[in-house]
């Protein structure tokens, strides 16, 4: 019985390991291509803004990072729900692997936002701003999720506790997105995803979208990498347990 269930557990991760190995070079090349084009277009070839001058170029990093903050979180929450309901180990591994990547993107969004805020608004950070604070909460949700994984020795227990936190944190996703609509904020309202079409000139919108695609491809690369590493770590763990008990 034990051997059977273990076989069943590792059947899918093994297939995933093969599939991800053949995918990685392609997504990696795509990432380099998109980020290369996007960075040159955004930082060099695109025009300066009529108000912000060259400071507008921070947007090409800040906005994709902020989008990824939400996108990665939604992925982590979906994987957590799948792991909770179907008890699929690969889903738990995917959710666990999302967290540090999402935390990284959130940190980039927070730091670049502060760097833009100082010259433009006249402040690095405002505690009263609903958008700023809700994104900081998201950063702490990622960190809390990672800490929960560390708090348990047993992966099954850890994955369940962490998955519940991930699902609870989903309420923050619409709060972040709509914070600039629901309340008066220092942060500007959405320029791209808004009713009536983008209020950003095409010469700036295109490099922004290329950067967003590049960030997404980069996320896929990091996710596959982390998942592969996690699967290997678990196999090493199982082998060492077997060796110790033999």
């Amino acid at each position: 019985m034990m051997a059977m269930s273990r076989l069943h557990q590792y059947a899918n991760p093994m297939r995933f390991a093969r599939l991800s190995k053949s995918l990685l070079p392609w997504v990696g090349a795509l990432t380099i291509l998109l980020l290369g084009i996007g960075l040159y277009w955004g930082l060099v070839a695109s025009p300066a803004d009529y108000q912000q001058k060259d400071s507008v170029r921070i947007m090409y990093i800040h906005v994709p990072a902020a989008w990824m903050t939400l996108f990665v979180y939604v992925n982590m929450a979906i994987a957590s729900a799948v792991g909770l309901i179907w008890r699929h180990p690969l889903a738990d591994i995917a959710a666990k692997s999302c967290a540090p990547i999402g935390a990284g993107f959130t940190l980039i969004a927070l730091v670049t936002g502060a760097l833009w805020g100082q010259p433009m608004w006249g402040t690095w950070w405002e505690w009263g701003d609903a958008r700023l604070v809700s994104v900081l909460v998201m950063f702490f949700l990622y960190l809390g999720y990672m800490a929960l994984w560390q708090a348990y020795d047993e992966p099954t227990k850890a994955s369940r506790a962490a998955a519940i936190l991930a699902l609870v944190g989903v309420v923050n996703v619409p709060i972040i997105h709509f914070s600039v609509e629901w309340w008066n904020t220092l942060h500007q309202t959405a320029s791209v995803l808004k009713i009536g079409g983008p209020s950003i000139d095409a010469s700036m919108l295109w490099p922004l979208l290329i950067m967003a695609l590049g960030f997404t491809a980069y996320f896929v690369v990091l996710l596959l990498w982390r998942m592969r590493a996690e699967i290997l770590a678990r196999r090493i763990h199982v082998l060492m347990m077997q060796k110790a008990s033999a």
Partner: peptide, 13 residues
């Protein structure tokens, strides 16, 4: 504090 709006465009535009 200066509040920036959601409009982004080059000076020519």
């Amino acid at each position: 504090l200066a509040k920036h709006d959601e409009n982004y465009m080059p000076p020519e535009v």
